[in-house]
């Protein structure tokens, strides 16, 4: 539970004192903008834009000569190997603010947004330095990760002539609860379990496990009353017509028609591909089944459309009936 009442008021009063503060630390490029670091960046990014590496093409371009990739802006001032030690500059007001959050239970931190503006592209020989201001701290928010506060910082980059060349705004969420590494996660709030994400598995129990066993064999079963022959889906233990508890099943042809459908955009659950089409399909045997319609533009799905089921692996482990439009 987040702090509340007087304690929260006092905490938020302390936060207010940080808004508008320069963090007190100036970062500067340890080397002038140079071809070696540009090449290393372009190789890592697979960026073959000739304006970064080929002086002949660059001179003939709108840029008039070699320039540095704009997204490198922050790279020129980062600390390099020393960062691995993870030591804080005691004068750094931003670190001090984070420690204040930590002390009040908001130990989690996650970067949520960055915004960069580039006034000009840097050229070899330029140097840059940046000063950072704590621009704003949000009111307390309920987020997917928990209760917390968003901190906005803005760094302004200037060159050797004291002219502004660009800026970087950065938004982080300090939230209550587990330590999550910066940049690790935004919306999902999840860590990363081993392996690629899989679909949600069905829960198996006495009345439905047999159905999934048949699916494993590549057939689409429909439960049938062994007494009066009436079909039923989803499976249940008793026939609603004659109350018999004896049953067997038939194998559906998988031919069907769309009764209704939806196109899911939100929320995006790992293991599924969006937009995701899910339809209620009436099988030719008369029973209905809910499943995905695949290999079709969502805009082309329509009520009444003829579809054919096939049993397929939808991830590494799960077999499921999926439907494809039947071309007529």
């Amino acid at each position: 539970m987040a702090i509340s009442g007087k304690e929260r008021e006092a905490f938020e009063k302390k936060l207010e004192a940080y808004v508008g503060l320069d963090i007190g630390v100036e970062d500067h490029s340890r080397n002038p903008i140079n071809a070696a670091m540009i090449r290393q960046w372009c190789e890592a990014m697979g960026d073959e834009n000739p304006i970064y590496l080929d002086s002949e093409v660059a001179s003939g371009s709108a840029h008039g000569g070699i320039v540095a990739p704009p997204a490198m802006l922050q790279a020129w001032i980062l600390g390099g190997v020393a960062m691995a030690a993870g030591e804080d500059d005691p004068a750094d007001k931003q670190r001090e603010l984070h420690r204040l959050f930590d002390a009040h239970g908001f130990t989690g931190v996650v970067a949520t947004n960055t915004e960069q503006e580039y006034l000009r592209y840097l050229q070899p020989g330029d140097t840059v330095r940046a000063r950072t201001v704590i621009e704003s701290i949000s009111e307390q928010k309920a987020t997917g990760l928990g209760i917390g506060y968003f901190i906005n910082t803005r760094s302004v980059f200037k060159d050797q002539n004291d002219d502004e060349v660009g800026s970087l705004t950065f938004r982080v969420l300090k939230f209550e609860g587990a330590e999550v590494p910066a940049e690790a996660s935004g919306d999902s709030g999840e860590g990363s379990p081993a392996g690629p994400p899989q679909r949600i598995k069905p829960a198996l129990a006495h009345d439905n496990a047999w159905w999934w066993d048949v699916i494993e064999t590549g057939e689409l079963p429909i439960q049938r009353c062994a007494e009066c022959g009436v079909l039923r889906h989803p499976p249940r233990p008793m026939c609603g017509e004659c109350q018999s508890t004896d049953w067997d099943f038939i194998r559906s042809t998988g031919e069907g028609e769309v009764v209704s459908f939806v196109v899911i955009h939100y929320p995006e659950v790992p293991g599924y591909t969006y937009p995701l089409v899910v339809a209620v399909v009436e099988l030719s045997e008369g029973e209905r089944f809910v499943g995905n319609v695949v290999d079709v533009d969502p805009g082309d799905v329509s009520i009444g459309m003829a579809v054919q089921a096939s049993i397929e692996l939808v991830d590494d482990e799960l077999k499921l009936p999926v439907f494809r439009p039947v071309s007529v």
Binding site: R199, I200, K201, P202, A203, L204, A205, D207, N208, P234, V259, S260, F261, V262, I264, Y266, P267, V269, Y272, L276, V278, V280, V290, G291, N292, I303, V314, L318, L320
Partner: peptide, 28 residues
């Protein structure tokens, strides 16, 4: 959960998705 198991593997798992299914048919 056994009930929802007829829908979750196909990705139908929110109130909006269930209601949208009826809505689409109604609009049609």
């Amino acid at each position: 959960l056994i009930h929802w198991s007829w829908y979750m593997p196909s990705g139908l798992m929110t109130p909006a998705s269930w209601v949208a299914m009826f809505t689409q048919r109604y609009m049609h």
